[in-house]
Design a protein around this nucleic acid. Structure first.
Lengths: 243, 243
DNA sequence: CGTGGATTTGATACGGGTCAATGAGGGTGG
DNA sequence: CCACCCTCATTGACCCGTATCAAATCCACG
């Protein structure tokens, strides 16, 4: 399932500092050292399940490398991706205050590393550092907004708007501005992307093909996509999402 | 837009006590008195808009009577209901820690009353009563779970499952057990219900008609619906939601 | 260079949206 | 007290959009 990781605390600590993990932003180096001392490090291979739906993980995990998908699945195998987590994101918020079972499964999209804080450790951190609590609440607020948008997308908006919104959303997190436009390093396969926006894999292919024909996007090797015409994409997305 | 309400604090205080508003559960009577002193009371008529999408309300509101819907709407008039708030629920969490614009509009479903706490007042309450903060986080956790389920419903589940899940969900909040089954006092019109689960009004009618034919539900006057066969409904809902 | 998985493309079916007409309440005014 | 009207809900017919099934092609990796 997972390997106790060979990463030493020093490396993790560097990461905590260097990457500016949001929930720990603003803490002193010495405080980060203390946190690093509390964390356990685990590495996962692609496909490994980190948290099972309805289980009580008992820890809060911060992604220190790679990426994770959080998804719900039906008995007939259809999966709906709720979140994509990458470096600096955390999950396991169910363990934060009261032990609620996780509403979703979390699995690694790539070989990944996690910093794990057992719930007791995280709670004691919260007591000592109210800032962290604030950051957590802020993050939950963003997560709510993300889902509120997702519900609207799936409820009342057409396929094209959903694709474009999904692309722009991922561009915001995984995109880099280059002279030709915005280069998005997609964390998800086509199938994953389809499961993220709630459409069929084939349909995602088709519509992305149309966007290519319209010179709005261009494949850029591997999973990368170059958004050539951001404005067209935003117009098609229709409302309220910008990179 | 709204009338400063003739309710006196005494009545509001009684409500705070009597209804056991979740976020204030566990507080002393004297503390509730202090809160009542901080609140402002407003009454709204059906259809009144309380918070506009993208506005910064600057307050946290607790529903003390009636009901509210929170929804997003597209330029072409389609609306997606995200939450239904009734007595004891709160909204305006965007003002909690940082002034984020509201991601949705809130409007009264019926003549309603709100207890309004300006953000400064609520923040000072949070400082004095960490319990309230915990309750707020807990509530946000439930709200996340609600949306996570909604996203799955809209993404990968068929119409019947969505209707049944929606009915069961509302039954949990607005249902009372009677000898014949569960009597649900629907807070939403047919159109509202359709907008809540993300389908067309007509389709909702049709499928509810089929459920009546199958003796699963029965109209019970006005908007009320009697669920005769809870098990059948749960089976059709398919997964994970129980009253 | 070969193999297997992922992606794209094509053809078809059908769920559910849309439009249009009818029907049921419930409040209002005569 | 009844009739009317306005709103909301139901019912039916139709058709578009998207899922599904099937096959071809691409691509990464050994």
């Amino acid at each position: 399932m997972y390997n106790d990781c060979a990463l030493n605390c020093e490396r993790c600590l560097k990461k905590l500092c260097a990457r500016g993990i949001p929930v720990f932003a603003g803490l002193e180096y010495s405080q980060l050292e203390r946190i690093a001392g509390l964390t356990e490090h685990r590495a996962y291979a692609k496909g490994d399940v980190v948290v099972e739906e309805n289980s009580r993980p008992g820890f809060v995990a911060i992604v220190s490398g790679g990426g994770m998908k959080a998804y719900k699945h039906t008995p007939d195998g259809r999966e709906q991706i709720l979140y994509v987590f990458s470096e600096g994101d955390f999950f396991g918020e169910q363990s934060l205050l009261f032990d609620k079972p996780s509403a979703y499964r979390v699995a690694a999209l790539q070989p990944s590393e996690l910093c794990i804080l057992r719930k007791e450790a995280f709670r004691s951190l919260l007591l000592d550092h109210p800032d962290i609590g604030m950051k957590v609440i802020e993050e939950l607020g963003w997560r709510l907004e993300h889902l509120e948008n997702a519900v609207q997308n799936m409820g009342v908006r057409n396929l094209e708007a959903r694709i474009c919104t999904g692309l722009l959303e991922l561009a915001g997190k995984y995109g880099e501005t280059v002279p030709e436009g915005v280069l998005v390093h997609m964390p998800l396969s086509r199938e994953g992307f389809a499961n993220y926006i709630g459409i069929a894999r084939e349909t995602a292919s088709r519509k992305l093909g149309q966007l290519e024909d319209g010179r709005v996007i261009k494949p850029a090797g591997g999973r990368a996509i170059l958004i050539c015409d951001v404005h067209a994409l935003e117009a098609a997305a229709g409302l309220g999402v910008s990179i």
